[in-house]
């Protein structure tokens, strides 16, 4: 349109009407603001995928290299605790999804209840995780802190695990590589737990705000985006459970 006379002509001012207080000045509409925030959250989650991705790559490589060590080391994890934690986290994901639904349909009491349940389940997950961690600490399976190879060079000394798996002793050279398994175990689950802790802190803040009715008056972006974060943490755990606990139970 080369003969257009106006350079920068404005949109009509006619559609100027009252904006809700939560609409930031640089957005045209509530939809645009919510869209932008949601998209930003998705992009952030993609960076998280790559952040964990580096560790998943390392895990897959070393599992291929030191297969016997990784099998023996993974037998130190208790599938029962892992299963319980998976259930806890999946249910917390469900309560979070219900929380988002409550916010969207403006049910304040329901929202507060769902957020609280999510928080309790999240704390439960961390509690179970700490039981598992303390077991590793007792057995000196924490890399870098007087790491002990006894369970792998002499499996019969570790009677509970031996009763279940009847592992053969590993040669010293291979047994040493169990330390890499536990390094990655702690790096992966530790980073995951850190995300849980951050999530629980934000949940606390949200419960406080939800009681004041902040999310049940139409502005649900924050709850929705936090929901995405919480579900993402759940997805990471689903893979951690499979990779760390389940895939190496048989030789």
């Amino acid at each position: 349109m080369p003969d257009s006379p106006v350079i920068v002509h404005g949109a009509s001012e006619a559609d100027h009407h009252e904006h809700p207080a939560y609409l930031r000045h640089h957005f045209e509409s509530v939809e645009q603001q919510a869209d932008a925030a949601g998209f930003a959250m998705w992009l952030f989650l993609v960076t998280e995928v790559m952040f964990f991705g580096g560790m998943f790559t390392a895990y897959l490589i070393y599992r291929n290299w030191y297969y016997p060590a990784f099998v023996a080391a993974s037998h130190q994890l208790d599938v029962r605790w892992g299963t319980l934690n998976t259930l806890v986290l999946i249910i917390s994901s469900f309560t979070m999804a219900m929380g988002v639904w409550c916010a969207e349909t403006r049910r304040k009491k329901g929202l507060v209840l769902c957020l609280m349940l999510t928080m309790i389940l999240g704390l439960g997950f961390l509690g179970i995780k700490s039981i598992e961690y303390s077991e590793k600490i007792e057995k000196h399976h924490v890399p870098g802190f007087h790491y002990s190879l006894q369970s792998f060079t002499d499996p019969q000394s570790d009677s509970a695990v031996y009763a279940e798996y009847h592992d053969k002793p590993l040669p010293l050279d291979m047994a040493r590589h169990t330390e890499i398994y536990f390094s990655l175990y702690f790096a992966l689950t530790g980073m995951h737990a850190l995300h849980m802790i951050i999530g629980i802190a934000i949940l606390g803040f949200m419960i406080f705000r939800a009681q004041a009715g902040a999310y049940t008056s139409g502005h649900v972006t924050f709850v929705e985006n936090f929901g995405l974060y919480w579900h993402f943490v759940d997805v990471i755990w689903i893979y951690l459970f499979a990779l760390l606990y389940l895939i190496s139970r048989h030789q």
Binding site: F39, W42, L43, V46, V49, M50, G53, G54, F56
Partner: peptide, 12 residues
């Protein structure tokens, strides 16, 4: 966006 994340992860 989800697809791009998965794709890049699989590339790595």
């Amino acid at each position: 966006t989800v697809g791009a994340g998965i794709f890049t992860f699989l590339t790595l």
